[in-house]
Design a protein around this nucleic acid. Structure first.
Lengths: 339, 339
DNA sequence: TTGAAAGCGCTAACAA
DNA sequence: TTGTTAGCGCTTTCAA
């Protein structure tokens, strides 16, 4: 089955292929009759335009790149879902790449996107982005998402993790906790750093230190949470409260707590970062910090369209702001006053 | 910042652009010295190949299309994640489209993929795929995934939902349940139909009918599960067991059960389809049917590469089989013998 | 081993 | 309103 081109249509209709092109693109100076004839012929021949040719001609494709560390994370998958919808609505295609927090993978995807002449790139930087990544990004309209790396540009749509995480600290201080532990994502991520910092600072001010030995940072996987929780909770100086910076890690933590036979919240209070659907169903239900995902996605889509409506040449000029969002605490059964 | 082309490189080096092309593509009949000179010049000029031009020239792109109903579903997001990795490994780009179970959206994505001359398409059909979708798919290497629509081709990688769901029926019969209700996905989906059928047939054989009035089919969203559960459990002839065909719906069901103040499992046994991570953490923990997601993804990737290694012209000839997988029951606290 | 020429499908000037 | 010509960047003949 050979691909039909505008030339085939032109031949079949005995006209020039440029006329066909104009008719298909609804060019103003074209007779209504021609348009009609061309379109029905295109239809009956099964014509499918060649995006590659169009891209070459126009110098830009209709591809939007989305680079996320991971797409199992409900946070990221919500973003991917919403953006996929929005892109389709305006006739763009979404190319998805997962970096798995690896700078090499990140740069690979950026390179491919550049090769495809992507119209814009949405990226949650891996935290150790290479110089090459910076250069590649510099040539494309970029929106940083959920995570922010100043090296890659000023603009971004993020959560103020320090302030948001401090809600957990205040909540626990209020309940009388003074020995708090933390499990979270690696310090190489902007989020990992800020969350820990926010927790640390407020706890300290409240007279509760967060020493290294009660902190475990690592991959946002259930497995890491499990290991870290086992380590932290097996010590003699067992903390009275535990904050977990990633809902994926929290899954593992809950399993560990169950294995260790710890009673929540009487023996240990737990606060999770995020507010995944299962938090309310867990035994006991988990106190979490709800994040305004929908609002962030909304703004991202808006920024994206602003970027798309600008000249393809002027990269990164559309939105030089860092938008900060804030979460709110949702208290459930997993936290209680220190008895 | 203008885009560098092979012509620019050629000019800078005083050679023909064809030589540059050959050097960059590691063509056999090219001197090692030329290759070296060309490559370092390409590097220093910041050359980025134009995929559009290459696509036009070759008649095929390096794009893989992935069309899923939804990507929040852990089932689908696991697939998307794994495939994104695999595609990147072999230098392909993954274009993600979400159909939201709408035939129109589905056909839109297929059309765009065809326009982009996608090398292959992986699709979980929406269940009411249009004739146009069939035609578009016929021109591309296709692998049906997780769901199967015979209209769109014989091959596919799916779960034998009827047999797998019958595990739930057997389990409940064994526990003495005879009044079972079912909440699941729409009958337009191959999965929706098969799951209900599998449950129905085995229950009937065991002397427990599954009448219409104890069945609610609809969208795989928590909200639908919530409503459906409220309806089913508020009746006088309240069932003693409830099977839920979608883990997303189950989230809503659990909320409804909690709102209604029903005791699980003493007043109601619950079996979920799938075995999401939170099943083990819920209160009470949920009996589920674990599905071999990883194995399926593995096979999908394998089939995909077979397809890629074949001639671009010969669509759909690579894997004319329907691979069926089976789940297994994981018994937890939410099911108990009828007292 | 390299160069010259042609053409992939499309659109934008310009001419008719 | 339509046709002619040219060129986007690349690879593949074919010739040198």
């Amino acid at each position: 089955m050979p691909m039909i081109t505008i030339k085939n249509i032109a031949d079949a209709l005995g006209m020039a292929h440029t006329t066909v092109s104009r008719a298909l693109n609804d060019h103003p100076h074209t007779s209504a009759e021609t348009k009609q004839r061309v379109r029905s012929m295109a239809e009956s021949l099964g014509y499918v335009p060649n995006l590659g040719a169009r891209t070459m001609r126009n110098g830009a494709s209709r591809i939007i790149g989305l680079i996320l560390p991971d797409i199992q994370n409900e946070f990221f998958s919500a973003v991917a879902m919403a953006l996929a919808d929005r892109c389709a609505e305006v006739g763009y295609q979404l190319v998805l790449g997962t970096s798995q927090d690896s700078p090499e993978r990140e740069v690979h995807h950026l390179r491919m996107l550049r090769e495809a002449r992507a119209r814009a790139v949405l990226i949650a930087p891996c935290g150790r982005s290479s110089e090459q990544a910076r250069q590649l990004l510099a040539g494309m309209s970029t929106i940083q998402l959920l995570r922010h790396d100043p090296k890659l540009g000023a603009s971004g749509i993020v959560i103020d993790d320090a302030v948001t995480m401090s809600l957990a600290a205040e909540h626990l201080l209020q309940l009388g906790h003074r020995t708090v532990a933390y499990i979270g994502s690696a310090a190489t991520l902007s989020t990992g750093l800020a969350r820990r910092q926010g927790l640390h600072d407020v706890l300290l001010k409240g007279g509760a230190a967060l020493p290294e030995r009660r902190v475990r940072l690592g991959q946002t996987l259930p497995e890491f949470g499990y290991q870290a929780a086992k380590e932290l909770l097996a010590t003699k100086s067992c903390p009275t409260a535990l904050v977990v910076g990633s809902s994926r890690q929290l899954l593992g933590v809950m399993r560990a707590v169950r294995d260790l036979g710890l009673k929540i919240p009487s023996q240990l209070s737990i606060v999770g970062y995020g507010d995944t659907e299962w938090f309310a169903l867990a035994a006991p239900s988990v106190t979490g910090i709800a994040l305004p995902i929908q609002e962030m996605v909304e703004l991202t889509a808006q920024d994206l369209f602003t970027a798309l409506s600008e000249e393809p040449g002027t990269a990164d000029s559309f939105s030089p702001l860092l938008h900060q969002f804030y979460g709110h605490l949702v208290v459930r059964e997993s936290t209680a006053a220190l008895s």
